[in-house]
Design a protein around this nucleic acid. Structure first.
Lengths: 129, 129, 129, 129
DNA sequence: GTGGTCTAGACCACC
DNA sequence: GTGGTCTAGACCACA
């Protein structure tokens, strides 16, 4: 899986990292049990600080998305069943202001639905269906 | 329209403000042509500095959501027709990582659709249909 | 001559007024010796404060573009010959940062020339040639 | 590149700053990829507050003239090709009232052309030709 | 009355 | 080290 960061972006590098790993898992490019590059490796590849990678891995661990093992490094977790209420609520909270903005911009309900569907397929590429 | 901010939140106050104003417009609580409280008024009401309000107002102005009338202060813009490609793209970019996260959490396509619909109605309360 | 102001514009109303009167003279719509509406009249027409009109008229008087007569009100001046060095210098100073910005945006020398010619004809409509 | 501001000028300091940076880029004194002094550095050099510099940098960023690199601070952007219509329109809007004023002052079409050419060369010093 | 500009000084997030 | 956020308080331009 190829990961790249944009140093000019508004979003912090560790966030970009998290997003890309999450994207990789959602798309199926990263499978449960698969091992991520070591912190050191990843840091060198991207030309960023060790701390930055570490922060991303640790936060994904806290999210239950990765497991960090002292010997094997970071490993993608298996899905533990349907999303918890907490998880749904988090998504909900993040989604809401964006939808409001979309409505404010004049997007109709249908356009929003279409956009979500589009993105869903763009992300999964047909997996997870 | 009632606006409140959470001083302990991670998201900056001016972002919260923007979100709430946008939410107000999307919900119909704030109508095009309606006047927002003056910077100073709003600052006093919320107990924050006037520069913070100023920043929020100015960014919404840059987004084309508010305009500043020399006599009346900040005023809600009328919709200028369907969303521009730029606007759609902005929404798209913001939506994508959240959907990926949702998928990662095990949300199905249907659950995501339902969530969007729910939120849509929660925001608009039946307007904008 | 029709004059209108945009209360949402960044540029102050009295500046807009000045610009439009100047535009009227440059286009030939306002001829030397012609009388402008009285301050009171103009203020009523546009729905703005008397002071605002007054400020515009007075600054144009200071520029040598209008003469303000107690009985006849504001009158368009005749051209007193070629532009003075002072006047040329003022134009130069105002033009410079805009041209720099244009270059920065990637406009070529030819594009700038064309733009100026275009505008010249748009303003004069063929007069002053 | 040497930058200086006039504290007595009518035009705000942050505007002067923007103009000078733009001038620097147009003249070739600032090249794409080049790094500008940090906000604090520049503030100290000029003897102004860091917020003033910040505002200038941010507006140039919004204009697409600078980008902010997380590691290096503000960096001059490369030209992204020919000017967009929006950019041309902005220049047009700014140019128009000045040309009208020039005409009003009695400048002929030729004089205006010459003035533009003069300024073009004064700014670029022969580059960008 | 409104918003715009500027200053001075603090704290934090990111790298 | 960098920029981002927030505060407090001042002065000015505009209407």
């Amino acid at each position: 899986m190829l990961i790249s960061v944009d140093f000019n972006s508004e979003t912090p590098i560790y966030e970009q990292l998290k997003e890309q790993i999450v994207m990789g898992i959602a798309s199926g490019a990263l499978k449960p049990g698969e091992q991520l590059p070591s912190i050191r490796q990843m840091a060198e590849d991207l030309g960023v600080n060790l701390h930055t990678i570490n922060k991303a891995y640790n936060q994904l661990k806290a999210d239950g998305i990765l497991t960090v093992d002292r010997r094997k490094g970071a490993v993608v977790n298996a899905l533990t069943g349907p999303a918890t209420l907490q998880q749904k609520d988090e998504i909900r909270k993040k989604l809401k202001p964006i939808l409001a903005r979309a409505i404010c911009f004049g997007l109709s309900k249908n356009e929003i639905e279409d956009l979500c569907n589009d993105l869903y397929h763009e992300i999964t590429g047909g997996n997870h269906e």
